[in-house]
Design a protein around this nucleic acid. Structure first.
Lengths: 136, 136
DNA sequence: CTGGATGCAAAACGTTTGCAAAGGC
DNA sequence: GCCTTTGCAAACGTTTTGCATCCAG
């Protein structure tokens, strides 16, 4: 499963695996697809009550730098952390309550070289917005 | 030009046009395509030194609620305000310095009804990411 | 043993809010 | 004159930082 994969990849990368970092990684690899730092901290603290917010933020930023987790800003006050950077997917966000659903893309938008303004473009993020069944 | 159009539309909508609101609207309609609230405040304060941050935030939120300005979060710490919500466009963002370029889309991604998870989807936002010529 | 990771508390940052004063219509 | 908008300052939630301690390798 994903959780084990993430921990395994971190070991392979010589990422120093402390108890704190393990519970943060496990909180991300768990059932919920996107979690805020606060939610990750809450989940981690259930297994390791003394873990501090600073450590959660440090670890999340390190995982993002390693490319193992993606940081997304979908309009809420806080950033969300997405443990599936490898599996290509797009986001569908509710304007009412902020609920997020993953969508598997039929096709990825691409930029013609003439439109790239000299940029080296390496990915495209797509966010669909609307109202979820509850908020309609 | 854009600036006059925005002010004209606001008048037509019975949006109370105070000196403060005028300089905020003008700061947005000016040369720069996307500005943070802080940049808008700085630009506005050049013409109206006593304008407060709170008024800038209030006005920006009102313009967003009216649909005259779009709020986008492109990864930086602050939200950006985009004065061209009517003209369909996508964003190309530099991972290095955060520079933003507008791109006219060849095609807009769409969601098949089966993928919508019951949402009423009303738009798709596309952000291309990479490195700008300077940061390469 | 040693450099890196942790916890705590405080600071920084962007944004919002409460309230009295000012000003547009 | 009424009602909305403004400015100020303080509150708020999120994220970062400084520093002493701790621990994995």
């Amino acid at each position: 499963m994903d959780g084990d994969d993430l921990l395994q990849r971190l070991r392979d990368r010589d990422f120093r695996l402390t108890a704190q970092r393990r519970v943060v990684a496990e909180a991300l690899a768990g059932a919920h697809v996107h979690r805020s730092a606060e939610e990750v901290h809450a989940a981690a603290a259930q297994r390791l009550p003394e873990i501090s917010r600073a450590t959660v933020y440090n670890t999340l930023n390190e995982l993002v730098a390693l490319g193992e987790v993606r940081e997304v800003q979908l309009g809420g006050r806080s950033r969300l952390y997405d443990p599936n950077p490898t599996r290509e997917h797009q986001h569908l966000v509710c304007d009412g309550c902020g609920a997020v659903v993953d969508v598997i893309p039929r096709e990825q938008p691409a930029l013609e070289p003439g439109d790239a303004h000299g940029y080296a473009v390496d990915r495209a993020e797509v966010t669909f917005r609307g109202l979820c069944p509850n908020c309609r």
